[in-house]
Every structure is written in C-alpha cells, then in structure tokens.
C-alpha cells in the first residue's frame, strides 16, 4: 500500500528525518506517534511529495509517489487544515468533485452522504467562515473521502476536535477499515491510537524507535496479573498479585490451597505510559 524506504531529510544542516523506513499493509489502521517536532509532519509531507527527501523513496500502491496517478485513490488531510472562509462548504466539495470528475447528478447524494458521516448535515450552503474550527476540520475530513480512496493519509485528524468530534472521526476510520481501506494517521492522542490502530510506529527526533502491533507492545509491557480468589465456603474476596511469569504457579498454589478463582486481570501499562517511559529513557540515553 504505502512503502517508505529509508528517507532522510535535512533542513539547513539539521537532520530532521533519519533513515525512516516502514511499510503499511492493506486494510490496516496504522498510527504514527511521536512528540512535537519529532518529524511526523515532515515525513507525511515527503510521502505526499510536497517536500523532496535528500535520500530514499516512497512508493504508493507500488508506484513512486511522484506519479500523480496514485492520487486518484488517495485521500489526504493536512495538519490543522484550512480552506477559504469566503466560499461555502458545497463549493469546496464541488471543487473536489470537479477534480475527480464526479458527474453533477451524483453530487447531491454523495455530498449529503459525506456530510452525514461527519454530522454536518445541512450546513453545506453556509459560508465556511461561519463554521467552527472543528466543523471545518470535519468538512475537510469528509472531503477526503469523495473519491472513495483506498488509502487515507491523515496528519493529526483528531487534534483540535472535542471528544464528540474525535469519536466521529474514529468511527469513520473503523468503518473504512471494515470496508478494507487502509488508514495511515499521525496523532498526539495516544488513547485514540491505542483503541484504534492495528500497528503503530513511534518516531522520536526523526528516527523510528518502535514499530509493532498495539497488542504486542502492550503485551510486552505487561506488569503482572491481579488474581481475585475466594476460599471455598468463605465470602471474603482476596486479591493476589503475580509477576508476568508467575501466574501459573500462583494459580496452582491457590488451587491446592482450596481457593476458587474469581477473576484474573492483566496489569498493563497503557500505551501512553509505555511511550512516555520509552521516550524518556531514549532521551536520557541519547
């Protein structure tokens, strides 16, 4: 789907992207996380051919990203997107439809479907200057779907949105995944990334530090288990802790001691805790 092959980029002697390599597979939601200034936007700009890398290359659908035909099936939302306030929402959607050659008789239905998706029904005739910031972002997000893209590239699609807006975007992304579409997006909001992504890449100071599935990362950072049990015949619940590799021995012991196991809860760090500690550790080491 999308292949980034060891791209590097210098801005005025400062190496901002260092040999970044990753591949996004068909049908997955891929989260791209990192602190401010890590190089997320720069990487995305290189993918979109707005900025040329000093070395390396990017393939989209197996073709170089400079080939504009790859954009027929691509949707892109920039960071903090903006569009002229002096036109209406419909006029902007018309522009997108013009580019993709959507015939006029299909537009009314298409536009209302897209607007409904992001909860903007009925505002298309209003000037964009009368929209709130979140509405603009949702409109522009919806407009990226106008060509029914196979791959969506979104730079912080949820920042600046309230929880309702974030949920809207997240549920559209999930729907797209169900339809077999691929989504690549960057974010600061790790909770969203955790519940939404199949895989994540973490970029810090222009380098990919970690790339794995969310399940694996969280699994690897398992702190231990909490076992709730009750002696047979007693009504008091007791709570036991086990280190990750001591769960089975604990369960065996409890069984022989005549306990009834009520529940076993893994104690996990959230993705956020993992990344914060990870990034801090790397920073100290570097």
């Amino acid at each position: 789907m999308l292949k980034v092959e060891s791209i590097s980029k210098k801005f005025k002697e400062k190496l901002v992207i260092k040999e970044v390599t990753f591949e996004i597979l068909e049908g997955e939601i891929f989260g791209f996380i990192g602190p401010n200034g890590a190089g997320k936007t720069t990487t995305i700009k290189i993918i979109m051919d707005f900025v040329k890398p000093d070395s390396g290359r990017v393939l989209i659908f197996g073709r170089p990203n400079t080939d504009i035909s790859v954009r027929r099936k691509l949707g892109f939302l920039p960071e903090r997107p903006y569009i002229y306030g002096s036109i209406t929402g419909k006029e902007y959607l018309d522009f997108c439809a013009d580019v993709f050659g959507v015939p006029y008789y299909e537009r009314r239905k298409l536009f209302s479907r897209l607007l409904e998706l992001v909860d903007l029904t009925g505002v298309e005739e209003q000037l964009i200057s009368s929209y709130s910031k979140g509405m603009v972002q949702r409109l522009l997000f919806a407009s990226t779907l106008i060509n029914d893209p196979d791959l969506l590239i979104l730079d912080e699609p949820m920042s600046g949105l309230d929880p309702v807006g974030r949920n809207i975007i997240a549920s559209v992304m999930k729907d797209l995944k169900e339809k077999g579409k691929t989504v690549f997006y960057s974010s600061h909001i790790i909770q969203d990334v955790e519940r939404l992504s199949d895989r994540v890449a973490v970029i810090v100071d222009g380098e990919i530090k970690l790339l794995d599935s969310v399940a694996n990362i969280v699994q690897n950072f398992l702190k231990g288990y909490q076992v709730t049990a009750r002696k047979v015949g007693s009504s008091n619940l007791e709570v036991f802790r086990a280190e990750p590799d001591e769960l089975w021995p604990l369960l065996e012991r409890l069984k022989t001691e005549g306990y009834e196991i009520i529940s076993v809860e893994p104690e996990r760090l959230s993705l956020e805790e993992i990344l914060v500690s990870y990034i801090q550790r790397k920073r100290r080491a570097g």
Binding site: S69, P78, Y82, Y84, V99
Partner: peptide, 18 residues
C-alpha cells in the same frame, strides 16, 4: 500567498493535479 501560507495548497495538490 493565502494558498501557500494557509496550506490550502496541501489540499489542492493532494488531489491528482500537477
């Protein structure tokens, strides 16, 4: 300038346009 500084170009050039 509005296009370039307000990043409207990103929206436009992400479409199949040269």
């Amino acid at each position: 300038f509005r296009d370039i500084s307000d990043k409207v170009v990103y929206l436009i050039l992400s479409k199949p346009l040269r």
